[in-house]
Amino acid sequence: MTSVLILNGPNLNLLGQRQPQVYGRTTLDEVAGMCRTAAERLGVDIVFEQSNHEGTMIDLIHATRGRHQGLILNAGAYTHTSIALMDAISSSEVPTIELHLSNVHAREDFRHRSYIAKVALGVICGFGPRGYVLALEAMAAHLLEDRS
C-alpha cells in the first residue's frame, strides 16, 4: 500500500495553544486524527511525526527513501532557514508537498522565502488544519498518476 510520511517541525507540538489567532485551536493530535480519516478514505497509509529538532527531521526525511512514496512537510520556521532540510528532500528523491497552516505570504516578509518550495511538488498554505487533508488528497492523486 502507498505510504506517506507527514512530518511536522518545531513548535507544532503546541498547536491549539500557541498563537491560536494565527494557527487555530485544533491540536496536533486532532490534526493527526483528521489525517488518519482522510488516509483511510484515500487508501493510503500514513506515518505522522513531529520534531522540534532539525537533525531528527533530516533523519526522518532520509528514512523515507524506500519506505514511503510521499512526504508532506510542515517544517514550521525551518522552511525559511534550512538548506539542510532542502538538501535532505532532494537526496531522498521522494515527492514532497510543503504545507503551512497560515498563509505565510500574508505574514512577515521573512516568511515569504521558502527553501522547501524549491524542491517540492507544490505548496499548500492558509487553510488551517484542512490543509493537511488537501495535501493528502494532492499527494494521493500525484502518486496514483505515477502508477498510470
Rank of each mutant, 00 (worst) to 15 (best):
A84C: 08
A141R: 01
G16I: 12
M57R: 10
R147H: 11
G126F: 02
L73W: 00
S102C: 14
Q17F: 05
S114A: 09
A63C: 07
Q69G: 14
A38F: 05
I97N: 00
A77N: 12
L136F: 06
H142P: 06
N11V: 12
L73C: 02
L73Y: 00
S114L: 06
L143C: 12
Q50T: 10
Q17T: 15
S51T: 15
L60Y: 08
P20K: 12
S148L: 11
G66L: 09
V123A: 07
E40D: 14
A77D: 13
A84Y: 06
I6N: 04
N52F: 09
G70I: 01
V123T: 15
N74W: 11
S82W: 10
L7M: 14
G24P: 01
L71K: 01
E137A: 02
N103V: 09
Q19L: 15
T56S: 12
H142E: 14
G24W: 13
N74I: 12
I89T: 01
L101Y: 11
Y115H: 04
V133H: 00
T64Q: 05
I116G: 02
H142F: 15
H80R: 08
A120I: 05
R113W: 04
C125F: 05
H62E: 09
H53T: 14
A32G: 12
M86D: 01
G55V: 15
H112M: 04
A32M: 13
D109Q: 09
G70T: 02
S114M: 06
G128M: 01
M1A: 14
L42C: 11
Y132A: 01
S92T: 03
